[in-house]
Simulated scan of single mutants.
Amino acid sequence: MAASSHRRSRRPDRRPDRRTVRVPAVAVTAVAAVVLVVSLVVAFRPGGGDDDGARTVKPVAGAQVSGAPTPAAASTAAAASASASPSAASPTPSPSATPSARPSAKPAVPAARAGSRTAPSAGRIQPGTDYQGIATSYDVGNGDGACSYGPTSDVMTAAMNTADYETSKACGAYVLVRASGGASVTVRITNECPAPCEAGQLDLSRQAFAKLAPLSAGRIPITWSLLSPATSETVSIRYKTGSTQYWCGVQAIGHRNPLSRLEVRANGSWVALPRTEYNYFLSEQGSGCGGAIRLTDVYGEQLTVDAVAVRPDVVQSTRVQFARH
């Protein structure tokens, strides 16, 4: 076709001309040179060449190529992809190319990573729900209670009725309490109120009760709900007194939202530890003691804390906190 195109462009006169017959060698040489140049252009243009034979298809930057490339080809493709136009199609990254959330080296303090969310907890106390009940008051003493947090100077606390305490699931929860007259107070659950406390009832510290009504009122109707407050406190881990690598009790302290689950890493999988009424999670066979810990709150958020050494009755900070809701 190249020669045909050349002939159409020259349109020679069909009548004989002696002057053109005298130099046939020059004309033939010129025509041959032009044909050669045109043939080379056609041969080397993208997709050029004869269609009669098989052609080698070269992958274009950004295109997916089937088959496993050699290391050299992979490096070349990566370089081409980096220089390609943003509008070009990008290949789907393989799982191994996804950046890992794990730190490359363990820090001096227990590190924590945010994990994927799970389904919200199915416990009695649910986020975004108002509960009706009665408020009473009691003397909190040194601030310690059934949740085993220990003495504290924070007097804005409360004891949860046994039904809603739910084997210590309410421990550490922040609760907004509202009286019928419009007064409100935020308390943290640190204790359990056994019978005759009934479902929905909160036994407030005297200082917290006084924010709602005079202590002489004794019992007042209230509405309360779960709160996810602003806080500068971070989550800490504490092993129970007597814990070793063969038996341990694990407790989380300072969490913004109530915990629904605590798991330890054992034999390559996560194992959920049972929770006691005194707010420790027990590993009675020693599984995972001193290893990684995963915490899940009632909203389904998970925090994974790298190996925490077994140091009984020592509060070890993780420097992380659950998200606010």
Rank of each mutant, 00 (worst) to 15 (best):
M1H: 13
A2W: 10
A3E: 14
S4R: 15
R10S: 14
D13I: 06
D17L: 10
D17P: 06
P24V: 05
V31W: 10
S39I: 09
A43P: 02
G47V: 01
R55E: 12
T56F: 14
A61L: 09
G62Q: 10
A68M: 13
P69S: 10
T70S: 12
P71M: 02
A72E: 13
T76L: 15
T76P: 04
A80M: 13
A80T: 13
A82I: 11
S83M: 15
S85F: 04
A89D: 11
P91L: 04
P95G: 06
P95E: 00
P95S: 11
S96F: 12
A101S: 14
A101H: 10
K106V: 14
V109L: 15
A112M: 01
A112P: 07
R113V: 14
G115L: 05
S121C: 11
A122D: 15
R124L: 11
P127I: 02
Y131S: 02
Q132K: 15
I134V: 15
T136V: 07
V140R: 01
G141N: 08
G141H: 00
G143I: 06
Y149E: 09
T152H: 05
E166A: 12
A170F: 05
G172R: 02
G182A: 04
V187E: 10
T190H: 09
C193M: 02
A195Y: 02
F209L: 07
K211G: 00
K211H: 14
A213C: 04
L215Q: 02
R219H: 14
L226E: 03
S228C: 07
A230V: 15
V235E: 06
Y239L: 00
K240R: 13
T241L: 15
T241C: 11
Q245N: 15
G249S: 00
G249I: 03
G254H: 05
H255Q: 13
P258H: 02
E263G: 05
R265L: 11
N267Y: 10
G268N: 09
S269C: 11
A272Q: 14
R275E: 01
E277W: 11
N279Q: 00
S283P: 06
E284G: 13
G288R: 00
G290W: 01
I293D: 03
D297L: 07
D297C: 05
V298E: 04
Y299Q: 09
T304K: 05
V310N: 04
V314R: 08
V315E: 07
R319P: 00
V320E: 07
V320I: 10
Q321C: 06
H325W: 11
H325P: 11
